[in-house]
Amino acid sequence: MEKNINITLRIWRQKGPKEKGAFKEYSLQNISTESSFLEMLDVLNEQLINNGEDPVVFDHDCREGICGMCSLYINGHPHGPDEDVTTCQLHMRKFNDGDVITVEPWRSAGFPVIRDLMVDRSAFDKIMQAGGYISVNTGGVPDANAIPIPKANADEAMDAATCIGCGACVAACKNGSAMLFVSAKVSQLALLPQGRIEAARRAKAMLSKMDELGFGNCTNTGACEAECPKNISITNIARLNREFIKAKLKD
């Protein structure tokens, strides 16, 4: 049931990418447990603005768990302590009266901090540009039902395709690896006949871009899968490995 709680926030404040950051504490009274975590931060920012201070900067947009814009490392977990949700869907009912909540940005060399809790995830776009597509132009394609696709494959491709590109996998990984993200895309397209044709090229191009951008490598801890708000499976990583090794052996 709805109730109000008092909490203390310990939030990472950092002016810019080059500047030194530090934690700052804020206390908030009467936060409804029905509000979302970001709505709680809205309340904090309203309070800060009214006190003439700079509001806390954080990324967010759709607030329904699909755009992948929100991030935040809350009490030791990307997207906070709840399961299978993004930060915007995390609700304050997961916290208790008197809690101290530590909020940090994604920390990874691949995601430099822009300000406070906002990080630069453009590396993901660069990885996608390296080969995360099927090379077809608009128009001149066959009828949608021309190539039947086994339901199991289509469903598995869909599961991989649910990745929202939020970067929680990188944030959760002690190696700062983007393998779950890369593998989800490689997997989705490798499972479909349309994407099969370029599968080898895609796996090589996306992986080498990931390496080049300074992400770590996968040691199969599974932290990414555990923290992924969309439950992307690490078996996708196995498929990426397979595609990559096969491609390299053929070269």
Partner: peptide, 22 residues
């Protein structure tokens, strides 16, 4: 109709029946 064709060609994993069709 062309939109659906285009999206399938791009690898959009639309829901399918057991027969493999959309």
């Amino acid at each position: 109709n062309s939109i659906i064709d285009q999206c399938v060609a791009q690898g959009v994993p639309f829901a399918r029946e057991y027969g493999g069709l959309l």
